[in-house]
């Protein structure tokens, strides 16, 4: 096969996909987020995207905080810097691991679920039926999910931050023999407001990416169960990669000063 033709095809395919995504993004923002608002749908999505993700996010944060404490302790002993464990755990969780891991876990759970639900609605003509009943699918389906993603992800990350630091604390006190008061004092003293807010800003963007990718791939699925399956996979993969890429860009912007 001609390699140039192959490259050309891939490039064209990528460009077409980027164009479709831009159009979808425009519709999602200008149609989905402007009134009319479906409050009931929004409430349902707050529960599904936010509340139901609590166990996954909490467990992830807990174990990550714990493992961070262990690793930093091991590294710290080499420089006689064990006292830094608590502050580095807090920094690591609030600035990076809290938002990114929560984002990735929710991407796996929620992007997939959104893509599967909307994809099924698409291939069974339920979205057409919505249109015939004078209901704009962007407002009814996409808007509530995006709002729920953007609002609940930061809330989840606040909880992840607390549980993650707690995980580090428990390991620090029980396995590493730290003094409880000193550990907590170090955590609080060195943590800056900005460490937490930067993580929350990032997570709001992750929430947007998660909902957008789920909706986009759901809306563009075709061809029965197989098409819905493909949409689900694509939603999770693209949401995860976009989260990691956006994380890098935002980190370099937020901490460039």
């Amino acid at each position: 096969m001609n390699p140039l033709a192959q490259i050309g095809r891939v490039v064209l395919h990528l460009l077409a996909e980027a164009g479709r995504l831009s159009l979808f993004l425009r519709d999602a923002v200008f149609m989905g987020l402007l009134p009319r608002w479906y409050i009931r749908q929004m409430a349902i999505q707050f529960v599904r995207i936010g509340y139901n993700s609590l166990p996954v996010v909490g467990l992830t944060a807990f174990f990550t905080g714990g493992v961070l404490a262990l690793q930093i302790y091991i590294g710290g002993t080499r420089f006689n810097a064990e006292s830094l464990v608590s502050s580095i755990v807090a920094l690591g969780i609030t600035r990076e691991l809290g938002p990114v891991l929560a984002g990735l876990m929710v991407a796996g759970r929620v992007s997939a679920a959104i893509a599967a639900e909307i994809g099924t609605m698409k291939v069974t003509e339920q979205i057409d039926a919505l249109v015939t009943l004078s209901t704009n699918p962007m407002k009814y389906l996409v808007g509530p999910r995006i709002v729920a993603g953007v609002v609940t992800l930061p809330l989840l990350v606040v909880i992840a931050d607390i549980i993650g630091i707690m995980g580090g604390y428990i390991v620090g006190i029980h396995s590493l023999g730290f003094n409880s008061g000193a550990y907590l004092k170090n955590t609080v003293d060195f943590l800056e407001f900005k460490d937490v807010t930067s993580g929350l800003i990032k997570s709001a963007v992750f929430g947007f990416i998660i909902a957008l990718m789920g909706c986009y791939h759901g809306f563009h699925s075709r061809g029965g169960a197989q098409g819905v399956g493909r949409a689900t996979t694509n939603a999770v993969v693209s949401a995860s990669i976009l989260i990691l890429a956006a994380n890098y860009v935002m980190t370099s912007l937020l901490f460039s000063e």
């Binding site: 639900e117 099924t120 339920q126 057409d128 039926a129 249109v131 015939t132």
Partner: peptide, 20 residues
């Protein structure tokens, strides 16, 4: 389009009920 659409009712071949 909304104005015209509101004058229509449609039964789909597949029924297309909202399963949620």
């Amino acid at each position: 389009r909304d104005r015209v659409m509101s004058r229509f009712g449609m039964l789909f071949q597949s029924a297309a009920l909202f399963d949620s």
